[in-house]
Design a protein around this nucleic acid. Sequence first.
DNA 1: TTTTATTTTGCAAATGATTTGCAAAATGAG
DNA 2: CTCATTTTGCAAATCATTTGCAAAATAAAA
Lengths: 152, 152
Amino acid sequence: MSQKCQHEHREPVQLCNLTEQLRAKSRKITGPRQAILEVMSQESHPVTTKEIMAALPTGVCDRVTIYRAMHLLETMELVRRFDFGDGTARFELVRGNTEDHHHHLICRTCSVVIELEECFPSDLEKRIARDSGFQRLSHKLEFFGICPKCQP
Amino acid sequence: MSQKCQHEHREPVQLCNLTEQLRAKSRKITGPRQAILEVMSQESHPVTTKEIMAALPTGVCDRVTIYRAMHLLETMELVRRFDFGDGTARFELVRGNTEDHHHHLICRTCSVVIELEECFPSDLEKRIARDSGFQRLSHKLEFFGICPKCQP
DNA sequence: TTTTATTTTGCAAATGATTTGCAAAATGAG
DNA sequence: CTCATTTTGCAAATCATTTGCAAAATAAAA
């Protein structure tokens, strides 16, 4: 399944997936897309399009291109969208299984972000699905609080 | 504590709270605010400012006034803000205890909203607080799925 | 009830994020 | 290298939300 990914030196897994998946959808591997993925692969937390723009070498691409790339990568499940409630979308590279996901803990004062392992209990989620009759349940869950440094 | 609220016939609890709380903050009880609360008290799900505007008799107030009322009512904890991920804030009247809160299940197809009783387990949340050192934890949690009517 | 200090409101304009139209540029298949 | 197709940049459009400011409303005082 991943035989096409035999590179002698480590290369961001994403670029590899990107190539495979873009080909499969007859989409093109372009400079801007590679540069955007490159930037995202170096971030450990969700980033805004503005931050991606700032991290990109000047002139690599327009902000609009980043928005379009996020849409594309999101549908390809290479990128996941988060909402920290400040009116700006944040995006994070999907590493590993597509099924895996995680949530965040954000400081209400300084906005520092911690990645969490805890998730909404799946048995509870199943019960919600059963009781409501809804299918294909998913959830959005983020925690907010005051981080140790910002405490009085 | 609620002695001021002795009305012979039932009146929306909120209007009563509103009066008390506004007075306590030297804010004013105005027509627009009462009308907005009136509309919200008839909705059982979170509504957008646009929806409030539409439900209000023509000319009662400007959209801006609704935004400003939401801010005020939110700080007074008479209204709670929700984010269903479509880029528009939704507001719901707080009924009962301020500590109570609930989450929603939203159909990805028709956007129907179901109010849920299930919440993120507090013992898990406490563990997150302990492990991270964060204080005053809160969370935002919404579920998405396909409702029975929209299923293939 | 009139006066007065203060809060609110409407309206227009500003902001900010995101989207869209369109022609020019880039990509990749043959 | 050519051609069909996808992308991109740029400008302009949308949309939700905020802000400035003078006029209107409200509540408390006189």
